[in-house]
């Protein structure tokens, strides 16, 4: 996914409009694309998603801590579908705090599961008042059309 989007950008097959998402934006590192990919395949996708997000959003701020030490959204491992809502929301308190500390109004999540947890659960439970987009949704909404 990251490699494909980056390929489109690098080869100039898509052009991105940086004037659409001008508000402060942050990026969530999904555990499976980051830590797990690093462990299984020797490469964690940390930087790629940020680079693509930065290519769309001029006001980008990282969560703390970013990358390999980042916190899980709280719904990984199938928790989004399991009957442990209290644990899932409790786990997400750290993600909610991280998001709030960035002051971002837009959170980019490159994973279905993380996006659902942040958008549909944490946003409400912790009154974050944020917009959450998939990485590819951000790219699609930033398409500038043919030159």
């Amino acid at each position: 996914m990251f490699d494909l989007l980056q390929e489109y950008i690098d080869q100039d097959r898509i052009r991105l409009d940086r004037t659409i998402h001008t508000g402060r934006t942050t990026y969530h590192d999904p555990c499976n694309y980051g830590r797990r990919s690093q462990q299984l395949f020797g490469h964690g996708y940390f930087e790629e998603g940020r680079a693509i997000t930065r290519a769309c959003c001029p006001d980008f701020v990282d969560m703390q801590p970013p990358g390999a030490d980042n916190y899980c959204c709280g719904a990984g491992g199938g928790l989004w579908s399991m009957p442990y809502a209290a644990e899932r929301v409790f786990h997400g308190r750290l993600k909610a705090r991280q998001i709030r500390e960035t002051g971002a109004r837009l959170v980019i999540a490159p994973c279905h599961n993380c996006r659902d947890q942040i958008l549909r659960s944490l946003n409400r439970e912790y009154e974050l008042d944020i917009e959450v987009k998939y990485l590819w949704q951000l790219v699609a909404d930033s398409l500038a059309g043919p030159s």
Partner: peptide
């Protein structure tokens, strides 16, 4: 099952 397999422990 309550663990999200997030991997911070392993890290």
């Amino acid at each position: 099952w309550k663990c999200t397999l997030c991997g911070r422990c392993e890290e």
